[in-house]
């Protein structure tokens, strides 16, 4: 039996109230769906004296289309709602697919999009009970100094494991935060840092309010692929988000691929747009370009043994999943997963 450490629970009903409660206590933490923070607290990875639950803040829920055609998704909208939303499925298919593959049905009902964006990084030496971690002598991410993944390593390499981050990056999403200093917006591309201990540019007193997804062009195609051990419950061993924008003639105008669960931050495959641009899906030239793009992704991705699953296997699956996900996106299909 895993008990939670003691804390005081606050249940504000407005964002302003939540911001004030957070500012009052220097070690307060926010809980949204609780599917990440609660197990982590049970493992004594976090022991805040105050927990601010956003469960009763209605203004943070829901999906709507702005006047300019972009989508505003409230941070507390559940992953199940995002996955089922007709608006999201039509305008941001990769995001809907990624949310539909997070964990299992109960966890998607509880877990929120905001919570998934702000998910703590994961590592097989970190997501363990206090007893387990103490027996090992702890690690640099929590309570210790060494890294068990890279012997003698100076930087934490725990893996970004949020399925929603790669599609949001391909979609050019923006995150909106509220704090005692007012509101600010940051592009999700600029949000990450290569530090597994804390891989996000967010202050402790900030509350994620909404995720803004710009309007995609008419020929937009997207898909998400997820490598996992089981068909449910699991975090990704590899996540691949694809964006293909086709022009009026059906040729690729813009291509983007972002992978995750390999290192501390999601990674964009560079120089890929040049390979795919101008190709028409369904032609042999497109298939050859996809194979070339997959080989390029393999060259750029070097996963470490940070999360369960053989690192060599995960690396070998990068080109397989990039290829399958690109092909699925070009046909307007997806999600991609073999279990």
């Amino acid at each position: 039996m895993l008990r939670l450490p003691k804390f005081e629970l606050c249940t504000p009903t407005t964002v302003a109230e939540a911001v004030a409660l957070l500012a009052e206590s220097p070690d307060a933490m926010i809980v949204a769906g609780g599917t990440d923070l609660v197990p982590n607290m049970k493992h004594e990875l976090f022991t805040p004296s105050r927990v601010v639950s956003l469960a009763q803040v209605r203004e943070l829920r829901g999906i709507c289309r702005n006047a300019d055609g972009s989508l505003a998704i409230g941070a507390m909208t559940s992953l199940a709602e995002v996955a089922a939303s007709e608006l999201v499925r039509a305008q941001a298919p990769a995001l809907a697919q990624a949310c539909s593959l997070v964990a299992g049905p109960q966890l998607r009902t509880m877990g929120t999009l905001g919570g998934n964006v702000l998910l703590d990084t994961r590592c097989q030496w970190y997501n363990q009970t206090y007893f387990w971690r103490e027996a090992l002598g702890f690690c640099m991410k929590k309570d210790g100094e060494v890294c068990h993944v890279v012997k003698g390593g100076k930087n934490c390499v725990a893996a970004a494991s949020n399925d929603s981050a790669p599609p949001l990056m391909t979609l050019g999403a923006t995150l909106e935060f509220a704090s005692p200093r007012g509101r600010r917006a940051i592009a999700i591309d600029d949000f990450w840092v290569a530090d597994g201990i804390f891989n996000k540019k967010v202050e402790r007193d900030e509350v994620l309010v909404s995720i803004q997804v710009p309007k995609a062009p008419a020929g937009h195609r997207g898909a998400y692929g997820k490598l996992r051990d089981r068909g449910s419950i699991d975090f990704p061993l590899l996540g691949v988000a694809v964006r293909l924008d086709l022009d009026a003639q059906g040729a690729v105008e813009h291509a983007d691929v972002v992978v995750t669960a390999l290192a501390a931050q999601p990674k964009r495959i560079t120089k890929l747009d040049a390979i795919l641009r101008g190709q028409r899906p369904g032609t042999p030239e497109f298939e050859a370009a996809v194979a070339e793009a997959a080989a390029l992704a393999h060259k750029q991705c070097k996963p470490l043994p940070n999360i369960p699953g053989d690192a060599d296997y995960r690396r070998d699956m990068v080109p397989v999943y990039v290829k399958r996900t690109l092909l699925a996106a070009s046909r307007g299909e997806g999600p991609v997963h073999h279990v």
Binding site: G34, P39, K42, H43, Q106, T109
Partner: peptide
């Protein structure tokens, strides 16, 4: 007791959720 097995599933407003990861007062 950490959200993997589903043995604690209850319905909240008709939808299945995991009671082991739900804070009671919320």
């Amino acid at each position: 007791d950490k959200g993997d097995c589903g043995a604690c599933t209850v319905l909240v407003d008709g939808k299945p959720v995991l009671a082991c990861l739900t804070l009671a007062r919320a």
